[in-house]
């Protein structure tokens, strides 16, 4: 029973006549960090949204552990409770304090008593350097702080799998580092992470596996070293050259 935690097989997604994902096969083993790279419109975000059941796949299967997420009989809410997702735009609830943002799901969706939820939330916050921000509302936080709070919120429900969708793309360059440090910290803690990112340096440093997507197909897949330093495919080489040129 040593199969990967997340198993994506033949996933296809199209919006009208636009084919966004063609036939995606991807495994994420437990305690692994897998980075999805590729230009905008390559299908990275859509793939993450399919895994979190925010989109209905048009073909193929996605398994998390023993259950098939793409089974229509499955209650999507139950499945989503096992997955944490963080978006590019933070999406913190503006009307709640940081602490309440984090404790909302544990308390309401998982039935954790208030006291314990808050204790755990404070633990997460101090781990992410936000201990003094617990009572603040999101609008009083910097982008980096908001994104760290959003990660803490995703972690609060103890998900088996974390999905990060370009979580540093909306941040100022000097704030990117503080968020990526948190992600690296999570990897050390043994979490399983599937993330779409534009931070090639980070991917090379932290990812166990890197997938390059183009036009809804995984063009190249392998260890971070292989894909990012010595890509085999021309498309990957072109993409990397373009990205490096820009930075």
């Amino acid at each position: 029973m040593n199969q990967p935690l997340l198993r994506i097989r033949g996933v296809r997604k199209q919006y009208g006549s636009r084919l966004v994902l063609r036939s995606i096969d991807l495994d994420v083993a437990e305690h692994q960090v897998v980075c999805l790279i590729g230009g905008s419109g390559s299908g990275k975000s859509t793939l993450l949204r399919c895994v979190d059941l925010l989109e209905v796949v048009d073909d193929g299967t996605i398994h998390l552990g023993d259950s098939e997420l793409t089974d229509p009989r499955l209650d999507p809410d139950t499945a989503r409770r096992r997955i944490g997702i963080v978006f590019q735009a933070y999406n913190l609830f503006p009307h709640l304090s940081v602490l309440d943002n984090i404790t909302l799901a544990p308390r309401r969706a998982h039935g954790v008593p208030r006291k314990r939820a808050e204790e755990e939330a404070r633990e997460l916050l101090s781990r992410f350097g936000l201990a003094d921000k617990a009572k603040e509302h999101p609008d009083r936080l910097s982008g980096g702080q908001q994104q760290r709070a959003a990660i803490a919120r995703a972690l609060a429900t103890r998900p088996e799998l974390l999905l990060f969708d370009e979580i540093t793309s909306a941040l100022d360059p000097e704030l990117v580092g503080e968020v990526l440090d948190v992600v690296e910290d999570l990897k050390q803690g043994g979490l399983t992470i599937l993330m779409a990112t534009h931070e090639m340096g980070f991917a090379r440093h932290v990812a166990d596996q890197v997938c390059f997507l183009e036009n809804g197909v995984i063009v190249e897949q392998g260890s971070a070293q292989d894909v990012l330093t010595a890509p085999r495919e021309q498309a990957t080489q072109r993409f990397l050259a373009r990205v490096l040129e820009r930075s």
Binding site: R18, D59, G60, T70, P72, R73
Partner: peptide, 20 residues
């Protein structure tokens, strides 16, 4: 390959899902 391919046929799995 951006346009839907003509050769594509949905899998049995997907057809069962659609039926359900």
């Amino acid at each position: 390959h951006t346009s839907p391919d003509d050769t594509y046929h949905s899998s049995d799995h997907e057809q069962a899902r659609k039926r359900f």
